[in-house]
Design a protein around this nucleic acid. Structure first.
Length: 214
DNA sequence: ACATTAAGTGATT
DNA sequence: AATCACTTAATGT
């Protein structure tokens, strides 16, 4: 936890009116996490709503065998839809949130949720918008898994990864990609090789560079 | 130099 | 698309 600097919720200023923004800054606690840290695990209870001030959080589902499936990323200026559910209905999480890179979260105690939903229209709107956006993304995920083949899913994965890393160079192993897409490494290696032959990307060790015409 | 981890490949289901 | 078995390449100690 850190002391409050002057103003760190600037990424959220378009969502909230000034009164609420000030209250948010006053009531929240800053939390820093390192890349790879698990912030929230399946089955865990949630005591605070996190607003992502800086960084990227990966949200994924894990099955009984511990296999992972990437659902979506949360970027700065956003929040996690799951926590809203959990907080308001006091449920436990059904997803895992992992820090994709070093990140900073502003944590708001759940006790303010009810009150703000009534008192601050901009808070309510933010919550509803977040839920809607996630719902939409979730449908997209389902489409991917149900209707698309691995090669398409891989391409989308690479693009998304590149977008959130804000770079055409992605640092991942084939194994990691396999884990996140719920497939095995050999399949990933072969598909990547195919894409490399089509001049869509370059493969390095633990690193992939996307080329323009992917 | 050796052990470990990452990536490439043919064959089989 | 998954699994196996094996090879080769890269990286760490």
């Amino acid at each position: 936890m850190l002391d409050h600097p002057a103003k760190y919720l600037t990424k959220f200023s378009e969502h909230f009116d000034p009164t609420l923004l000030a209250e948010l800054e006053e009531k929240s606690m800053l939390m820093e996490v390192k890349g790879g840290d698990v912030i929230l695990n399946i089955g865990q209870n949630i005591r605070a709503v996190p607003l992502l001030v800086d960084g990227v959080i990966k949200v994924s589902r894990i099955n009984d065998e511990g296999q992972e499936l990437l659902l979506y990323y949360v970027k700065e200026g956003e929040s996690c839809a799951m926590t809203f559910n959990c907080c308001m209905l006091t449920q436990t999480s059904v997803i895992r949130a992992t820090a994709e890179e070093d990140s900073v979260l502003a944590c708001i105690p759940v006790s303010f949720m009810e009150e703000w939903m009534q008192k601050h229209p901009s808070w309510k709107k933010f919550v509803m918008t977040t839920l809607l956006n996630r719902f939409t993304e979730m449908i997209k995920s389902i489409d991917e898994v149900a209707f698309k083949k691995m090669d398409e899913r891989l391409i989308n994965y690479l693009k998304e990864k590149s977008r959130i890393a804000d770079s055409s160079v992605i640092n991942v192993t084939h194994q990691q990609i396999g884990n996140e897409l719920g497939t095995n490494r050999v399949v990933v290696s072969r598909l990547l090789k195919k894409l490399e032959n089509e001049n869509k990307l370059l493969i390095y060790n633990k690193q992939i560079k996307l080329l323009k015409d992917l």
